[in-house]
Amino acid sequence: MYIPFNELPPHARLWIYQANRPLTEEEQAKIKPLLQRFAEEWSSHGTGLQASAELLHGQFLVLANNETAAAASGCSIDKSVAFVRELEQLLQVTFFDRTRLAFLKAGEVEMVPMQELKSKVSAGEIDKNTLYFDTLVNNFGELQEAWPKPAGKSWLSRYF
Rank of each mutant, 00 (worst) to 15 (best):
L14H: 02
S44I: 00
S43I: 06
L35S: 09
L63P: 10
L55T: 06
A53V: 05
Q18W: 02
H57C: 14
E54N: 07
Q59F: 09
D127Q: 03
G107L: 01
L34H: 05
T24H: 04
Q89G: 06
D78L: 10
I31R: 05
T130S: 10
R85K: 13
T99P: 12
N65Q: 03
M111T: 08
Q50N: 15
Q28I: 05
G107P: 10
G58D: 02
E41C: 03
K30D: 07
F96H: 12
F95T: 05
A123G: 15
V84E: 08
E54Y: 13
E110W: 15
T24L: 00
F60T: 04
Q115M: 07
F95N: 08
A12P: 09
F38N: 07
R21Q: 03
K128G: 12
N65E: 09
G124I: 00
E41A: 14
L8S: 02
V112Q: 03
A106M: 09
A106F: 03
M114S: 12
F133V: 01
L55M: 04
R85S: 15
F96K: 13
A39C: 06
I31M: 01
S44W: 06
A69E: 07
G58S: 07
L101R: 02
W42D: 06
D78H: 09
A123F: 04
R21P: 13
A39Y: 02
G107Y: 00
L63G: 02
E54P: 11
T94Y: 14
V93Q: 11
P22N: 11
F60C: 08
T47Y: 09
A123D: 13
A71G: 13
T99G: 14
K120P: 08
P113Y: 15
K79P: 11
T68V: 15
